[in-house]
Design a protein around this nucleic acid. Structure first.
Lengths: 126, 126
DNA sequence: CAGAATCCTACCCGATACTG
DNA sequence: CAGTATCGGGTAGGATTCTG
């Protein structure tokens, strides 16, 4: 069962493993999930300044940085409208949406078992 | 559908949300998943030095630190056998095992769609 | 408006001793 | 064996200022 569970691990190359690992690490960092969530709630494109408002606590610099990374990873699309003043919109890709769905599943699992995520309780239960 | 997807978000308190977020961030950091995976493969308790060998590249200090965090989060159990020289064993809790199962699901999703995780391809597909 | 550039700080992590 | 203690480099992220 443990073997079956990790079967797919043996069928992937080291490079695939490393890329997946990197993606998870980047996506689970401080801000990316919040940004994806806000974009998902918006249910459509959002301007940079809207994101800056709605992702509470993020700085302009880090928002820019993180959006660039999300774009490189194929999770959001950046659209520049060449106007003065400039207008830039960000929206989820379908991949970004699907990934968020997966993460929400994990999220729900954690929230449901939140009482267990405590050392003493876990010790007693095992 | 987007609403249904995030229904549970509205039913949880801010504190629950924050705790879940923190747990994901900690678990998805550089080393924790590797450690959990190694413990899962071992299919039983492992001594500190075995972990140090099998979690390739980790330093002794960071392994200790990370194990402490995993223990606090209820994902591993630390058992000290008061001998000389001391012997300490770590093993997955059932919660740790379950969490790893969830993460592996996510992992598989990412590996399967790895070709999509690329900005240009995603842009063309959308 | 949407950023780029700069400065600064805190923290993570690795390497290296040392200890019960 | 399984740590703790200490030092140092690298980096993520915040605050601020400037610009097309």
């Amino acid at each position: 069962m443990n073997e079956a569970m990790f079967d797919f691990c043996t069928t992937m190359t080291d490079e695939e493993d490393q890329r997946a690992r990197d993606l998870i690490e980047r996506a689970a960092a401080k801000w990316p999930l919040r940004i994806l969530h806000v974009l998902s709630e918006a249910n459509g494109p959002l301007r940079f300044s809207r994101l800056l408002e709605r992702v509470e606590g993020i700085s302009q610099k880090v928002l820019t940085q993180t959006l660039r990374t999300l774009e490189k990873d194929g999770l959001v699309i950046r659209t520049l409208y060449p106007q003065v003043p400039p207008r830039v919109e960000y929206e989820l890709t379908s991949l970004g949406h699907d990934l968020l769905l997966q993460v929400v599943t994990l999220w729900r699992f954690i929230v449901e078992r939140l009482p267990d995520f405590d050392a003493d309780k876990a010790k007693r239960a095992s």
